[in-house]
Design a binder for these strands. Structure first.
Length: 482
RNA sequence: CGGGGCGUAGCGCAGUCUGGUAGCGUAUCGGUUUUGGGAACCGAGGGUCGGAAGUUCGAAUCUUCUCGCCCCGACCA
C-alpha cells in the first residue's frame, strides 16, 4: 500500500507524454479552459492568480528601476503599422484586422495590436522635444492578438496577456544599458521567483525581433529537451524613431533621432512554470509564485470534529496574519485522501495536516509536495519550520531544474556531431559559430534546430564554426524550440 | 499550412465495420453512515451522438461539406 505512489488518477504521466500531461494538468488543475474560439483560452481563477503574482512582482521590479505604467489603444491604424518596413514585414502574417465599425465599413482598417511599437511611437513623437524629456520609461500591461496557426494553452495562444516596456533614450549607450538592465530583471525574476534557470544572451540576425537592431533573450530548457524563450529585450536603436519621427534637441543643440528599447514577457511564463516543475501527480508550484503556499487539511474524525476544525481555523488565521498565502480546506464532502490528491495536482508546495493525534500532541504534520516527506512540528514552531520548508522547496525546485539543464547541455564540434546530438539527445547544444546566416540555416534545414542564444558575444576561445569549419566568432546554443 | 488521429451525459469511453430510435465507468443532486492517501449503501437527474446538407420507411452508424481539439512537421512569444 505504501509502495504505490500513483495517488492521482486521470492524468497522463509526465514521463510518458509531456504534451498530454501538460493539457491534462491545465484542465484538471483548473488553470485554463478552451473557449468557443479557436486558439483562445479562458484563464480560470487559479491560473489567473499565478499571473497576478507574476505581474505583481515584475511590476514592483520595473517601478524600482524608474518605470511607470500607462495604457495605449488596442487598435493600430494600418498606416502606422506600415511605417517601419521590417516591423510590418515580420508581423503581417499574424495580424487580425477590424474592417467594420457598427454598420460602416472603415476607411482605414485597424490592426488589433500584435505589439504596440507603432501606436506608442506615434505618441512619443508628439511628447519628446528635448534631451530634458529623456529618458522616457513606460511600461504597459495589456493583451495582444497574433493569428497563430498552431496554438497551445499558455505557450502560444491567439490572444495573450503581457507587459511591454517602451523606453526612449538620448544615446545608443543608454538604450543598450536599459536593454541589458531589463534582461537582468527578467533573469532574476525567472530564477528567483519561477525557480527556472535561464540563459541570457543575444539572438542571431535570423531570430531577432522585426525592427530591432539587437534582440536579447532569456532561454530555458523544458523537460522534453526543447528550448523555450521566456522573455525578450530589444535595443531598437533609431529604427523606429526614424520611421515615426521621434526627434529631440540634444545638449549640443542639435536635432537627433531618439534611441529606443522595447521588452516583454507574457503569460507564456505560466506554461514554462507548469512544464519545468510538475510531476506525475500534477503541478508543483514554487512557493514564491503559488497562489496558495500551504493548504490546511483537517482530518475531522468522529466526536473530535468541532475540536479539530477550530484548531485548523486557528492555524489558518495565524498563517494569514503572517502573510503566508494559505487555504483551509474544511469541505465536508471530500475525504482527506481525496483532498491530498487534489492539492497535489494543483501544486501547492506544502500541505498541513491536522488530525486527532496532532491536536492531542499539539503538533502538525507538514508534507513537502516535491517528495511527500512528512515533518512533525510542534504548533509553536510552525512558523519557523514552515518558512524554512518553503524556502527549501523554492531552492530545490531551482536546483532540480538546473541539474536537468546541465545534464542536457552538450558541447559539440563539427556538423555531424551537432546534427546527430540534436536528433538523438535534444537539449542545448553548445558550439562555435562563424556568425553567418547561411551556416545557421543549414542546421535548421537539416534538423530544424536554431541558435537560441549567443552566449559569448566577443570571442569564442578559438573554436571553429560547427558548420563551415571557419574560425568561430561566437559560442552559441543550438536547440529545437517551442 | 501539410501528414495522421479524435469529436457520443461535466469528464473518460463503448456502440459506427453489418442503419432499427443510446449505454458503461466516474462525476453531479437528495438521504444515511463516514473521514490519517481519491469512502460505502439507497434513491434521483442529466444526451436534438460537434454542426449542416443528402441517401433511406428509418441515421450516432452510410455520403458530402463544415467547425473544433490533439499529435508530428513548417512559422512564431
Amino acid at each position: 500500500m505504501e509502495k504505490n505512489n500513483d495517488f492521482v488518477k486521470q492524468i497522463t504521466k509526465k514521463s510518458e507524454n509531456l504534451s498530454k500531461w501538460y493539457i491534462d494538468v491545465i484542465k484538471k488543475a483548473k488553470l485554463a479552459d478552451y473557449s468557443p474560439m479557436k486558439g483562445m483560452m479562458v484563464i480560470r481563477p487559479y491560473g489567473y492568480e499565478i499571473w497576478e503574482l507574476i505581474k505583481g512582482n515584475l511590476d514592483r521590479m520595473f517601478k524600482e528601476t524608474g518605470h511607470r505604467n500607462a495604457y495605449f489603444p488596442l487598435f493600430i491604424p494600418e498606416s502606422l503599422l506600415k511605417k517601419e518596413a521590417e516591423h510590418v514585414k515580420g508581423f503581417a502574417p499574424e495580424v487580425a484586422w477590424v474592417t467594420i465599425g457598427g454598420n460602416e465599413v472603415l476607411k482605414e482598417k485597424l490592426a488589433i495590436r500584435p505589439t504596440s511599437e507603432a501606436i506608442i511611437c506615434s505618441m512619443y513623437s508628439k511628447w519628446i522635444k528635448s534631451w530634458r524629456d529623456l529618458p522616457l520609461l513606460i511600461n504597459q500591461w495589456a493583451n495582444i492578438v497574433r493569428w497563430e496557426k498552431v496554438t497551445k494553452p499558455f505557450l502560444r495562444t491567439t490572444e495573450f496577456l503581457w507587459q511591454e516596456g517602451h523606453t526612449v533614450h538620448s544615446s545608443y549607450e543608454e538604450a543598450e544599458e536599459e536593454t541589458l538592465k531589463i534582461l537582468d530583471i527578467y533573469k532574476t525574476f525567472a530564477e528567483k521567483y519561477l525557480a527556472i534557470p535561464v540563459i541570457p544572451g543575444l539572438k542571431s540576425e535570423n531570430e531577432k525581433f522585426a525592427g530591432a537592431l539587437k534582440t536579447y533573450c532569456i532561454e530555458a530548457l523544458m523537460p522534453d529537451g526543447k528550448a523555450l524563450q521566456m522573455g525578450t529585450s530589444h535595443n531598437l536603436a533609431q529604427n523606429f524613431s526614424k520611421a515615426f519621427n521621434i526627434r529631440f534637441e540634444n545638449k549640443k543643440q542639435k536635432i537627433e533621432y531618439a534611441w529606443q528599447t522595447s521588452w516583454g514577457v507574457t503569460t507564456r511564463l505560466i506554461g514554462a512554470l507548469i512544464m519545468a516543475h510538475g510531476d506525475d501527480s500534477g503541478l508543483i508550484l514554487p512557493p514564491e509564485i503559488s497562489p496558495f503556499q500551504t493548504v490546511i487539511i483537517p482530518i475531522a474524525k468522529g466526536n473530535r470534529k468541532q475540536d479539530i476544525l477550530s484548531e485548523a481555523k486557528k492555524i489558518y488565521d495565524k498563517l494569514k496574519k503572517n502573510k503566508i498565502r494559505s487555504f483551509l480546506d474544511d469541505r465536508d464532502s471530500y475525504t482527506p485522501g481525496w483532498k491530498f490528491s487534489e492539492w497535489e495536482l494543483k501544486g501547492v508546495p506544502v500541505r498541513i495536516e491536522i488530525g486527532p493525534k496532532d491536536v492531542e500532541k499539539k503538533q502538525l504534520v507538514l508534507v513537502n509536495r516535491i517528495n511527500r516527506k512528512k515533518i512533525f512540528v510542534k504548533q509553536d514552531n510552525l512558523l519557523i519550520t514552515l518558512k524554512k520548508l518553503l524556502k527549501e522547496i523554492q531552492i530545490d525546485l531551482f536546483k532540480r531544474a538546473k541539474d536537468f539543464r546541465e545534464n542536457n547541455t552538450n558541447s559539440v564540434e563539427g556538423f555531424d556531431e551537432l546534427t546527430e546530438t540534436i536528433e538523438t539527445k535534444r537539449g542545448f547544444i553548445k558550439t562555435g559559430w562563424c556568425g553567418s546566416n547561411k551556416c545557421e540555416i543549414q542546421v535548421k534545414e537539416k534538423v530544424s534546430a536554431t541558435i537560441r542564444v549567443i552566449i559569448n558575444e566577443k570571442n569564442s576561445n578559438s573554436k571553429k564554426c560547427a558548420v563551415c569549419g571557419k574560425k568561430a566568432k561566437h559560442t552559441v546554443l543550438f536547440a529545437k524550440s517551442y
